[in-house]
Design a protein around this nucleic acid. Sequence first.
DNA 1: CAGAATAATTGATAATTATCAATTAATGAG
DNA 2: CTCATTAATTGATAATTATCAATTATTCTG
Lengths: 237, 237
Amino acid sequence: MKPDDLILVRNIPIFAKVTEDQLSGLVAGGSLQRYPRGTLLFNEGEQADFLMVLLEGGVELFARDQDGNEAVVDILFPVDSFILAAALTGAPYLMSARTLVPSRILLLETGAFRRAVAADPDLSTPVMAELAQHFRRLVRQIKDLKLRTGVQRLGCYVLALAGEADEVTLPFDKRTLASRLGMTAENLSRAFSALRDHGLAVQGGRLIIQDRDRLVAFSRPAPLIDADEGPLSIIAE
Amino acid sequence: MKPDDLILVRNIPIFAKVTEDQLSGLVAGGSLQRYPRGTLLFNEGEQADFLMVLLEGGVELFARDQDGNEAVVDILFPVDSFILAAALTGAPYLMSARTLVPSRILLLETGAFRRAVAADPDLSTPVMAELAQHFRRLVRQIKDLKLRTGVQRLGCYVLALAGEADEVTLPFDKRTLASRLGMTAENLSRAFSALRDHGLAVQGGRLIIQDRDRLVAFSRPAPLIDADEGPLSIIAE
DNA sequence: CAGAATAATTGATAATTATCAATTAATGAG
DNA sequence: CTCATTAATTGATAATTATCAATTATTCTG
């Protein structure tokens, strides 16, 4: 890894407060990789050798059933770590990972990472915050899956993706989105059609919120489901 | 809190290695409570004042939508902490909690807990392991929800609940189970009926696996979805 | 123990979602 | 730029799941 890359690592929230020594120790056994779109990073069931941190690009975490059907569990954007839980505990991955676009990913050996985490509160504290944030993302998704229909789920997803803006471009395939939302691609297509009656215009991957009030009234977003919390922190007041 | 209760706390995995001093500091602002069945412990949206540890009984974590529909996100049995993520980060609860049976619960002030966690690797390490375990439980559930039909989900749930045994009694209401599995109570009832053709006999809350091979063949349990991992540990080899 | 309240089941129907097939649109390799 | 490939859409139909209503079990209370 180049010296310049250390600056990149330093900018990752979980490593912000680690000492120089710790950091170089961590990075020693690691590497910074670029992957083209569609690269399989690892498969569920494998042993976790590396903690991964997505620095640029996008990654999907997914799982397969015996018939080969895929379900996307989560979609990640920079900067975010993934498979933290497996890397910490040494348990096998529960999900596979694949790049959705060309991506830059930091790999850190789990051994060095675990040693550092056990020794250094300046690392363990943000690691706990990151675990907590990831946990809460999944809680939100389970609520989303159990309390809403597919069309509502899509509406809320679009609203969250757009934020303040009235127009967004989907940063990945619609079938990926479909799987993330727990539906088939055909169903997603129809869900988009359904939302045309509720204030959303769709032109390929370009989504235009034409009537936010109607879209909100129909989809009924809720802060305890849809808000995407930024990085959380653990502050002992 | 009585001196005897300290022994109870000591037996909680996340507190196993904490020093006496830390432990008494933690417990000082805490309390050990008994709650009757059906007690609402807190509501989603509220600020997290206490970390909770279920010592005896059972607790459901659930959420409501605007119409009052409830969705059970998870069901907990002893010994397990809950709302660790909210307690650590000070973020509002994403779920409400209610006792399913008479329960004994340890309450620890989040302030003292956060201070202790930031200072003591003997506490932070098992806390990370606990967060990791909880995270992975939810990953499994999302896979379950996205890859299986309701009937399969029920079959796998029964198989996991029974373990080696060929007979189990449901430790909570069927409507609670229905909601945990992401279906209505009516649907669960029909799902149980459907499983009668696949080796399961149902007599009230008593579930009898009459033909495990058939139940397995139909439900298709998978270790990366259904296995309930015991407590994980973080070991820096 | 009786009656009331709650939980579970069953039936009939509607809504939602999936599947299969076919077509159209978009993307990428040469 | 064109063809081949992949992605997305649409139609027709089936499977799954939800809803509403009614009935039967079960549990709780006095």
